[in-house]
Nucleic acid binder design. Structure first.
Length: 782
DNA sequence: CAGCTATGCGCC
DNA sequence: AAAGGGCGCATAGCTG
């Protein structure tokens, strides 16, 4: 294995290399790969091939190409014996359902990394290449790994697992995903530098070899067109990189790892193995199953919303008519201005010109003098702004949801919508979703300027429907984040409130509105529904979350329509009522400052390096200290380092003065030959992230634990229960209609059980629908 | 032409 | 002085 990395330099350092690289990275002129005459593509393939071959000359024997049955059998035997294998797939694209598998890279200790070609096609004849093992045989062999429960190592496991599942027919349960491990170990891994190669170079390369940088080589060339004898040279790396990276990570994450104890990795290891790796199959299952779409309903609302969009656009055009004179006038007097012809009010730049330069309006938001967001448009309350607001709302909902969802689903043979869940989508540990994002589907209605209410929440959500014979279940944690906060803070009053079956949002609403607790609940003590109570609670909710996420007093006041003083009083009163909460806010900050990270209930970490930065950093310009002597030979003479004492003095001076003075003092310091790096902004942001990360991260942990519980529940499985979409504190699922009652009970029970480690009770609300957010079905009527 | 950023906005 | 956190996506507009 060590010898494998003694490769010749893979960087395009020679002139010839550079020319070759340039050639192969030229854009493809003709994307129609079926066309034999697509000369450009053929040129690029040939160029890429000769480049790879020249780089690997003489090294072909360090890699194994598996084209015979016995060869694969032997390899699988060895992997079973080792109880470990790394797997990586090569495909024609990134869609695990629509694209196809091209080959598989595997590696196990004691054998060379190997490549199994499956679907390579000659780029000249467009005919499938010879000597590729049949898929049925590969399935049989890989199934042996599954049956023997061999530990499988991957990078971005869900992708490869779905590819192998959908196109080879074998479903793996992953043991180790290096990507997820990397995020658990350092959630701060820089964006865009999270690829296998990036991470492997960062942590395993120790300068012992150059980076293989021909990742771009095959960009735009479908991998199945790369000749096998070239493909295997390139492809077999990934499995071995996976191994290297996993070995590095295991030093921290495996209980017998050398850094496990010394770095207190118990919590992180728990999150990796018992939350992340265990919940991974739940995401894989949801992505592959997808969600049914109600195409009839889609057609109906498409008609309705397109028509209304046209009406709104027409209305805007009419209003605009009145101002065309002024606009044309401006065009004449400002040649070369950015107004297009015809004018595009969807452009924020052009709209700003109209509002602020032509109409002479003044932004109500001092921070955004040329802002055009909905708050500003609303406050301007100008006929043009009002018309634009209406158009925007419709365009958003039509383009992002109503037109998009059916279109997205139609791509798939099963006509269901298959999004992607990014299990570690947020640095806090939250899941995100894309292609399409199913976690931001409208849930509320919006109002038009004329007062008409458009119920986009119901209209759009009902696009998502239960499979035939099934019914949808939606179950959400009530007050998930605040309950988690009660546990994290160990605030006795909060805990007691929950133990008494009270709602903390309502408790805080009673402080804000200065009315008894009972008048701040959605339901009165007699069980009847209270509109005012619900509203008060609903007002308190963002205030509570605001406090948790470091929202400023002024901003809280704004939301409550109170002045700064009143808002401060409310803030103080809330913290006085829950002293443990106040302490939690402080202690979390201390934790971040001391360790550089904060933790969740279950041990997840989020790195916040800004918390350990000094407020200001100073360096002497040009490395010249004030006593710089150009004739001196002493090296210290060139130091850029400002003495500690001086740093302290300057920092104090900057911190103590007010905002106005600060810029002046900064300028003075600069003039004295010192550069200033101001970290106060980063630190302030990190301070706000501190508490949020703990609360949001713990909530994410809890929801993932719930998914695990639901997925592995034997009875639920037998009842045909299956999850569809997790939406942060809520899980959408479906089950056969006849099992609805039992599934609803179990669903709620599982989700509550998932939080058994918390010191507060949890409550979950289940609802049943035939379509998401459609008419609520009473279990007893089924 | 793709790929990037800025702005705005949907959700929890 | 004032500052809410976490996402993904559509559109406009710029760049290479």
């Amino acid at each position: 294995m060590a010898g494998f990395f003694n490769l010749p330099s893979s960087r395009a350092t020679t002139k010839k290399d550079q020319q070759l690289l340039k050639k192969v990275t030229q854009p493809i002129q003709d994307n129609n790969i079926k066309l034999k005459g697509s000369g450009k593509l053929i040129d690029r393939i040939q160029a890429a091939c000769s480049f790879v071959k020249s780089k690997f000359e003489g090294k072909e024997d360090s890699l194994l190409l598996i084209r015979e049955e016995q060869s694969l059998i032997d390899y699988i035997d060895k992997a079973i014996e080792n109880n470990r294998i790394s797997i990586d797939t090569e495909t024609t694209g990134l869609n695990t359902i629509l694209d196809d598998i091209v080959g598989i890279c595997i590696h196990t200790e004691g054998l060379k990394p190997a490549y199994i070609p499956i679907n390579h096609v000659s780029y000249i004849t467009n005919v499938k290449c010879n000597d590729q093992l049949p898929v049925d045989f590969i399935r049989e062999q890989f199934q042996r790994l599954v049956d023997a429960d061999v530990k499988t190592y991957w990078f971005n496991a869900p992708f490869d697992i779905k590819i192998l599942g959908n196109h080879v027919g074998v479903w793996f349960t992953p043991y180790w995903d290096c990507y997820i491990a990397a995020m658990c170990l350092n959630s701060d891994e820089k964006k865009g530098e999270k690829s296998l190669k990036d991470l492997r170079n960062k942590y395993c390369n120790d300068g012992k070899g150059e980076v293989l940088t021909f990742g771009k080589l095959f960009e735009g060339i479908p991998f199945n067109l790369i000749p096998i004898d070239v493909a295997y040279l390139y492809a077999a790396h990934d499995a071995i990189y996976t191994d290297e990276l996993a070995d590095f990570q295991a030093q921290y994450l495996e209980p017998n790892g050398i850094y496990y104890e010394s770095h207190n990795m118990q919590g992180v290891s728990n999150v990796f193995f018992n939350i992340e790796m265990k919940s991974m199959p739940t995401f894989i299952a949801m992505e592959n199953l997808g969600t049914a779409i109600d195409y009839e309903h889609a057609k109906k609302i498409q008609e309705k919303y397109h028509k209304l969009t046209d009406t709104m656009q027409q209305n805007l055009d009419n209003v605009l008519e009145d101002y065309m004179g002024q606009i044309d006038e401006y065009r004449r007097s400002h040649p070369g201005c950015k107004l297009s012809d015809p004018i595009n009010l969807g452009s924020t730049q052009q709209l700003a010109i109209v509002l602020y330069d032509i109409l002479g309006l003044k932004s109500p938001d001092k921070e955004k003098p040329r802002g055009t967001d909905k708050e500003i448009l609303e406050q301007l309350d100008h006929p043009l702004c009002n018309a634009i607001s209406d158009v925007r709302k419709f365009k958003k909902v039509v383009s992002t949801y109503i037109d998009k969802m059916p279109e997205e689903a139609s791509k798939y043979p099963d006509k269901r919508i298959h999004c992607k869940f990014n299990q570690y989508g947020a640095e806090t540990g939250r899941v995100s979703s894309d292609s399409p994002n199913l976690q931001n589907i409208p849930s509320r209605s919006f109002k038009l300027k004329d007062g008409t209410e458009i119920d986009s929440g119901h209209d759009v959500r009902q696009l998502f429907t239960a499979s035939p014979g099934y019914i949808m279940l939606s179950c959400d944690y009530s007050g998930q984040e605040v309950r988690v906060t009660a546990h994290l803070s160990q605030d006795e009053k909060m805990i007691q409130a929950y133990k008494d079956g009270k709602d903390v949002y309502s408790e805080i609403a009673s402080i804000i509105f200065n009315v008894p607790y009972e008048e701040c609940c959605e339901k009165r003590p007699d069980g009847t529904y209270s509109k005012e109570g619900k509203e008060r609670r609903a007002t308190a909710k963002p205030v509570v979350l605001g406090i948790l996420y470091g929202r400023g007093i002024a901003s809280i006041g704004e939301q409550l329509h109170k002045n700064r003083k009143e808002a401060q009083a409310i803030y103080d009163k809330v913290l006085a009522k829950f002293p443990g909460l106040a302490m939690f806010l402080e202690e979390s900050e201390d934790m971040a400052r001391e360790y550089g990270y904060v933790t969740t209930v279950w041990g997840r970490r989020r790195q916040l390096p800004a918390m350990q930065l000094p407020y200001y950093e100073f360096t002497y310009k040009n490395g010249m200290t004030p006593d710089f002597d150009p004739l001196s030979d002493e090296e210290t003479n060139y130091s850029t380092e400002v003495p500690e004492e001086e740093v302290r003095r300057l920092t104090n001076r900057l911190l103590r003065c007010n905002y106005k003075e600060r810029e002046l003092i900064k300028e003075k310091i600069r003039q004295s030959g010192i550069n200033i790096k101001d970290n106060t902004g980063h630190i302030a942001k990190a301070k706000r992230e501190v508490v949020n990360s703990r609360v949001q991260g713990s909530s994410a942990d809890l929801t993932k634990l719930a998914q695990i519980e639901l997925f592995n529940h034997k009875e639920l499985k037998e009842l045909g229960f299956r999850m569809l979409i997790p939406v942060h504190d809520e899980i959408i699922a479906e089950c056969p209609v006849e099992n609805a009652k039992r599934c609803a009970e179990l669903m709620s029970q599982c989700m509550i059980n998932a939080g058994r480690d918390l010191c507060v009770p949890l409550t979950c609300d289940v609802e049943l629908f035939y379509s998401w957010y459609g008419e609520s079905i009473d279990v007893n009527t089924l």
